[in-house]
């Protein structure tokens, strides 16, 4: 199998993992049901892993693909603008902060960016700035869950078979 075909299939696998993780999170009872929008963000694990193992464009691809596919498969259309904008914002912040922090820090910033973006989008959709009242909660939740997911991603990348990592043409 040539290099680009393998890269493509690895990305596809990561998308599949992300969709699966999103489905798993959907099955779990909502943690912190009193705060709307507060979630673990398990699916972001895949974006994060892609970012760590491959490159930023691949991570964006995985992020957008899993959001769209997830929405078509079991999501509701009304949630798509939130999921998509949050996912892309998280990807952008994570890609930019890649050289400054380890995976927990990168993931934390992604989580916070995701949640802040959701509030911004909701404020537009609701035409009401009052939703920023949730910001302190969602910053805290995004930080903690992002940090924990980053820590998990650290372990995942270390335990993945080395063949995957060597795929990365920019590998160290």
């Amino acid at each position: 199998m040539n290099r680009s075909a393998r890269a493509l299939s690895v990305r596809a696998m990561l998308v599949a993992c992300a969709i699966l993780l999103g489905w798993v999170e959907r099955m779990l009872p909502p943690f912190l049901p009193m705060i709307p929008g507060a979630k673990l963000g398990l699916a972001n694990l895949a974006t994060l892993t892609t970012l760590a193992l491959m490159d930023a464009p691949s991570a964006l691809l995985v992020c957008v693909a899993r959001t769209l596919l997830g929405a078509f498969m079991f999501g509701s259309a009304s949630a798509l603008p939130y999921a998509l904008s949050g996912g892309v914002a998280a990807w952008a912040v994570m890609a930019l902060s890649r050289r400054m922090f380890n995976l927990p820090g990168i993931s934390l910033l992604g989580g916070v960016a995701h949640n802040i973006t959701q509030i911004a989008v909701a404020s537009l959709m609701f035409a009401n700035a009052g939703l920023w009242g949730y910001a302190p909660y969602l910053i805290a939740v995004g930080s903690v869950s992002g940090f924990l997911l980053g820590w998990a991603a650290n372990h995942i990348t270390r335990r993945l078979p080395s063949g995957l990592i060597s795929l990365n043409n920019k590998s160290k």
């Binding site: 922090f101 910001a135 930080s143 940090f147």
Partner: peptide, 16 residues
């Protein structure tokens, strides 16, 4: 870098 991650976590919680 790991120390920086911790500082980031603490400052985000402080902002919140």
């Amino acid at each position: 870098r790991s120390a920086r991650d911790i500082i980031l976590l603490i400052s985000m919680l402080a902002i919140a």
